[in-house]
Design a protein around this nucleic acid. Structure first.
Lengths: 209, 209
DNA sequence: CGCACTTCTGTAACTTGTTCTAGCTTATCG
DNA sequence: CGATAAGCTAGAACAAGTTACAGAAGTGCG
């Protein structure tokens, strides 16, 4: 039951193949920057990256896979950037909020690219769940890093991180589709980040024990 | 710049037209119940509701419009049901959480329908923003009703409602695409609802004054 | 080198959302 | 009733994601 045709499986990819993959991703980003999700057309990505359509689909089995992979790329770059210049605020909640605001400012520079990536992640069905899960984990890692915990995160802290991640994705989409302003996105991020400083303050309300 | 061809504009719709519209929505729901988003195929909706394809598009200018309208329908039904049997918990946060859990249990009975509606709302682009905004307002109304406030909501309460709504949509999609369990959705809802009881407890952390 | 196997290419075909067109039906109004 | 316009139908046509396929190019091995 192996899938020898799919390089994303276990095959380590040759040099030329890595090169092709990079070309494809780059072409996708270029197209996404104009026009967003709709402008990333598979035939154009193939032409633009000098690869046959069939080859494109061998590397990325769907348009959504391609854009989710792009999102992974961008998150890894962001994560690296954050390692070099971590947030300096005293409170964990503020560090998380500022980290996300930094990411948000990055996305504002390329709203169309953001549109393509975020819509792909939210629209993705089960066939992409593994790849979207990587996006999820990367995002959560960024949030947890910003918390800068001493030990492993408590269940409450994990829960907060999850909810922050939800709010992040959903508020982004409302902004991208023109239903929320930058100010509203900012407010949502700050609001949800309050959960970070909370876990000890409010014990589970229904602590039957 | 009027759009006389679009009944959704201002035309009050005749009896026969209301009837057609209902048939279309019903057919859409029926198809969505099997197969989810992908199974709602416009030609089939048209056939199944005994309407020409062009007519379908006159009533709902895109598949996403159709499914967003379905979501509006469902939310109005939920809202009515909640009026008849409101949540009885003492704490506002618990009322909100239980309200959303009730909605969630409803969706669990028809996960495929939920898939179609939620994916449509999240995937919707600017051309549907008005209709998606109605979904947003209905959702927020349900949340605010569950809070059962005395006066008008404070800015913090509005902010909490917004974030709860974000978490609701996003956690639903993770469940629908198989990346989160029912337990995780439940936990996310309960976590975010803690924001409701909070506004007074945690003043703005950086109260420069 | 020559062979077997995989990968890549170019292209056509298929699917489904969306648009367009020509003609028919219904509603409105004088 | 008859004219006019708006709405409806059937079906073709178009667009973009996806799949299929035949052959060329690259790779590994005897």
């Amino acid at each position: 039951m192996t899938t020898p045709s799919n390089p994303s499986a276990a095959t380590p990819l040759t040099e030329r193949q890595e090169e092709r993959r990079r070309r494809i991703l780059k072409a996708g980003v270029r197209l996404a920057r104009r026009g967003g999700f709709d402008a990333v057309q598979m035939r154009e990505v193939a032409d633009s990256s000098q690869v046959a359509l069939g080859t494109l689909y061998r590397y990325f089995p769907s348009k959504v896979h391609l854009l989710v992979a792009t999102m992974q790329d961008q998150l890894r770059q962001l994560h690296d950037g954050l390692h070099r210049r971590p947030p300096t605020d005293a409170e964990p909640a503020a560090r998380v909020a500022n980290t996300l605001m930094r990411a948000f400012r990055g996305l504002q520079r390329d709203p169309q690219l953001a549109d393509a990536m975020v819509r792909a992640c939210l629209f993705a069905d089960r066939s992409v769940s593994q790849e979207v899960d990587v996006v999820s984990q990367l995002t959560r890692r960024i949030i947890l890093d910003a918390m800068r915990l001493d030990g492993p995160p408590s269940p409450q802290q994990m829960a907060a991180a999850r909810v922050i991640e939800h709010t992040w994705h959903s508020t982004l989409i409302t902004w991208l589709s023109g239903r929320a302003s930058i100010g509203e996105v900012t407010a949502d991020i700050e609001t949800v980040c309050r959960l970070v400083d909370l876990p000890a303050a409010v014990p589970p309300p229904d602590d039957r024990g």
